[in-house]
């Protein structure tokens, strides 16, 4: 239904999106995973028609281009930065956005109440958004993208700056929407969110699509081995063959069979204090693909999050 074909977008000398293609079908959550500045928001902007691609083509569900106002009816965008009228109440915000999509009368009232319920804001529906907490605004920001019940949802870092309860609430909503048959692109720099919510993940960095596949297959292909670490305070006896070098009181090695390795060591009589097994995940995949860890690459993101929380409160 959504089809993105070889789109490019640059801001002056910054190449924000390079030759990205992807397809999305109903009932699917596609993770768009990449550090801050990877080009996720730019890609969503191209899909939503906020930006014009330098090259390439986007086809929305229904077949239209996002530059065509009518075709945009099929998509809902929850922007990364809060996009609400602080001077209006929750209900007024939703009703206003619904009217922009041509909803009127009973239909409008129904959709607005459904979205207020979805955001868990029924009791605060007549309060101005200016009086809301960051988490409440985030939920309303998502609800405003759903008010016209679009088949395609673009969620740009919907959990930035929210408390754990709101995060869990948002996850539930995304899963429910997916089960209702919506096609969802979920942009995030949190590996955990992508692996929890998405079957398929697109990994982007510096505007490039580095990989696009099921999470399992990405890990299989790029995740490599599990990493095992045991803490061994005393020098191990010479007789025991260690799977890795003994350094600073620990032994570290990579393997596809972590449990068998540990079993063998125990049988050989080695005693140790702690065991850590790190199975490969999207983080490892990202590390493999870029040579950097997702966390390091997105280090500056944390300060941005902090700002977001402040601005939202």
């Amino acid at each position: 239904m959504l089809s993105v074909q070889h789109v490019w977008k640059s801001y002056g000398s910054v190449q924000a999106v390079c030759d990205i293609s992807l397809e999305l079908s109903p009932g699917e959550v596609l993770g768009l995973l990449g550090p801050n500045g990877a080009g996720k928001s730019t890609l969503l902007g191209l899909i939503a028609g906020l930006l014009v691609p330098d090259r390439g083509n986007v086809e929305l569900p229904g077949g239209g281009s996002p530059r065509d106002p009518r075709a945009r009816r099929s998509l809902g965008l929850a922007p990364q930065s809060l996009s609400l009228y602080e001077g209006l109440t929750a209900r007024e915000n939703l009703a206003f956005f619904a009217r922009l999509y041509g909803l009127r009368g009973e239909q409008l009232r129904e959709r607005v109440s459904a979205c207020l319920a979805l955001a868990g804001l029924e009791s605060r529906r007549n309060d101005r958004v200016a009086t809301f907490s960051g988490g409440m605004k985030r939920r309303l920001n998502l609800a405003a993208a759903l008010v016209h019940d679009p088949p395609l949802l673009l969620l740009d870092e919907p959990t930035v700056g929210v408390d754990p309860q709101t995060r869990a609430h948002l996850f539930d909503q995304v899963e429910r929407l997916r089960d209702e048959g919506k096609a969802i692109i979920y942009a995030t720099h949190y590996m955990e969110e992508a692996s929890r919510l998405c079957k398929r993940v697109a990994i982007v960095d510096h505007g490039r699509l580095l990989a696009l596949d099921d999470v399992d297959r990405l890990i299989q292909a790029y995740g490599g081995h599990s990493q095992v670490t045991i803490v061994l305070r005393e020098s191990p006896p010479e007789s025991i063959a260690l799977p890795g070098p003994w350094q600073d009181g620990t032994v570290k090695w990579e393997t596809n069979t972590p449990l068998e390795d540990l079993m063998r060591l125990a049988q050989s009589g080695l005693e140790w204090e702690e065991t850590t097994i790190r199975s490969p995940d999207l983080e490892t995949v990202f590390l493999r693909l870029t040579g950097r860890s997702l966390r390091d690459a997105g280090a500056s993101e944390e300060t941005e999050d902090a700002r977001e929380v402040e601005a939202g409160s």
């Binding site: 009816r73 922007p79 009228y85 956005f97 922009l100």
Partner: peptide, 14 residues
């Protein structure tokens, strides 16, 4: 600044 313009731009209006 407050981002509401983005929603207007994404909505099916010119």
């Amino acid at each position: 600044r407050q981002g509401s313009l983005v929603r207007l731009q994404v909505a099916p209006i010119r």
